[in-house]
Nucleic acid binder design. Sequence first.
DNA 1: AATGAAATTGTATAAAT
DNA 2: ATTTATACAATTTCATT
Lengths: 147, 147
Amino acid sequence: MDIDRLNWKILKCLQENARLSNAEIGRRVGVSSPAVSERIKKMEDLGLIEGYKAIVSPFEVGYQLKAIITLRAFMGKLKPFLEKVKTYDEVVNCYRITGDENIVMEVVLKNQKHLESFIDQLIIYGESKTQIVLSDVVKQKEIKSLK
Amino acid sequence: MDIDRLNWKILKCLQENARLSNAEIGRRVGVSSPAVSERIKKMEDLGLIEGYKAIVSPFEVGYQLKAIITLRAFMGKLKPFLEKVKTYDEVVNCYRITGDENIVMEVVLKNQKHLESFIDQLIIYGESKTQIVLSDVVKQKEIKSLK
DNA sequence: AATGAAATTGTATAAAT
DNA sequence: ATTTATACAATTTCATT
């Protein structure tokens, strides 16, 4: 697909605030609301826009800890883990990666006790390493046009 | 703040599709649209809802590679890096963490060449380790009520 | 804190360029 | 592919409970 300058402007608006009306986006980018609506629909249909999400603060809803946990899966345990991990409410993001560890996860937890019980769940799948997140330096940065 | 059952229902809707109208959310959760509107506004004001973002597919817009890069900063180089990293378009997420490495980043890249030049930029700040993402297992999972 | 009603604004569709 | 016109729907404000 060709993502022209206008579509990038629309994507910028939607990445900043997905709840903007088509009319408001139209005002900001200089086209009518039906034009915005059509372009958004096309980008959705093409899978370029995967969805729209409210960003909920884990801290504000009671998750006091965030951790990055890597897993080096035991023989034959990677596939079962890939299924199981989808069921964990604590796992916000999970990637399969190259290298010594097979998995890296971003996890939200209530407290130390919760962290302990979460890590305990992992021992049947492999060796885990946990690093506590001290601060978010960059958070869900907008995807920009590559030059 | 008290997040009652109704607010969690609203948060669930907004995490699934942030562009749902208040009227539609109201229909789904069983209240009027002004009630939805007021509750959302309050959750925004309290910082419980941090914003609404369109999820753009990095792959579909031309970023063929995703990587997890950790950085062990040189003495006196962590602070400068924390500022610099905000300016990198490639860095989607960046966390300061405990442990041997100081930083973990999720990075999107066009190709190997782009990866190489990105890593080259890091050498003045510290020692980096790169792991290529093979697949997204869990992607921006919804934050749920803790029991 | 939620509803119902009125005014404003936004959306969706179709016709035209 | 975008605009304008129009009918329908949603949002906002406010009075009411």
